[in-house]
Nucleic acid binder design. Structure first.
Length: 295
DNA sequence: AGGATTTGACCATA
DNA sequence: TATGGTCAAATCCT
């Protein structure tokens, strides 16, 4: 029953290491190893972004750099989704060669029953194509704006799963959705709560523009910073940087909790915390970065 | 008042 | 039939 892909990525690598899968370096190339490499690339890029952006002055150039980072990450996500599709169509082909007649009958729709089909399906079940998953302590800091549309207790899962769709679904018909599933409890500051986030579908909206166009002058930036520490804030407000969006109320609380653990409660440190949190840094990795003066 | 979230019901799929 | 994804009315929040 469970066709869900479980996270294979989001590991953070020390800058000195340039990880390349043994599979690839030895010429063994398959979907999985390529996807693994892309996910490492995403992780490294996220680290690089968190190092570069805070070091830049807030001007048009930094905005451009932020936008470029976002675009590269988007490309990477699309590549990953494309590979996923290929992977699944291959699987489907393999299945077709092995499947017995009973299963085939189930798969092929019966035309004679077409008239019984209701005029419009109110609830179309999502196909498991075009799917990317990852583990993160901050499931909504992904540069997109999401609106929660459901929550459900899932069998064998300790915590309920939340369902989000793109905020711009109605305005722009964006089909992107994601599910957020909490995986564990927070044992300590070193082991924050982890969530599995599964993205379905590609964004067809231009939500990034909406946000980056909202300006990056001091007053706007302040609004964003304050939002980070405002537990009652809402997702629909403007944001001044494209990777620091609020997803929902509970995530704001989560961010506040993380920020309280590590940083003083000032707005600029809250900003830095966003960068920390989105990196999923282990304590030793944080330590290395702090020693190296990256923050 | 308007937008976001919650939650029970509905529905497709395995 | 069990399960999980989505809908939509009720409720909450600003």
């Amino acid at each position: 029953m469970k066709q869900r892909h479980h996270p294979n990525n989001s590991r953070v690598y020390p800058p000195s290491q340039s990880p390349a899968s043994d599979d690839l370096s030895h010429g063994v190339c398959n979907h999985r190893s390529v996807m693994k490499e892309i996910s490492k690339q995403q992780s490294l890029l996220t680290q690089l972004r968190a190092i570069v952006l805070p070091a830049l002055q807030t001007d048009e150039r930094s905005e451009l750099v932020a936008q470029m980072f976002q675009n590269i990450l988007d490309c990477s996500s699309k590549a990953m989704a494309g590979l996923q599709l290929l992977h699944q169509s291959d699987d489907a082909r393999n299945d077709d060669t092995q499947v017995d007649d009973k299963k085939r009958l189930r798969r092929i729709p019966d035309d004679s029953n077409k008239e019984d089909v209701k005029p419009h399906h109110k609830h179309k079940r999502r196909r498991f194509a075009d799917l990317v998953s990852l583990e993160t302590p901050v499931p909504h800091y992904d540069g997109r704006q999401w609106r929660k549309y459901g929550q459900k207790n899932i069998n064998k899962e300790k915590y309920p799963r939340s369902y989000y769709r793109c905020t711009y679904k109605q305005e722009q018909g964006c089909i992107a959705t994601k599910t957020v599933q909490q995986q564990n409890e927070s044992i300590s500051a070193d082991h924050p709560v982890m969530y599995t986030v599964v993205y379905h579908g590609q964004h067809t909206c231009n939500s990034n523009n909406n946000c980056s166009d909202s300006g990056t002058d001091d007053s706007e930036t302040k609004t964003t910073m304050q939002r980070t520490s405002d537990s009652q804030s809402s997702v629909s407000r403007n944001c001044s940087d494209p990777w620091d969006h609020q997803g929902s109320l509970d995530d704001t609380k989560l961010m506040n909790k993380s920020a309280d653990l590590i940083a003083e409660n000032t707005t600029y440190e809250a900003f830095d915390m966003t960068a920390f949190a989105s990196l999923e840094l282990d304590s030793w990795e944080l330590d290395v970065l702090l020693r190296s003066g990256a923050w």
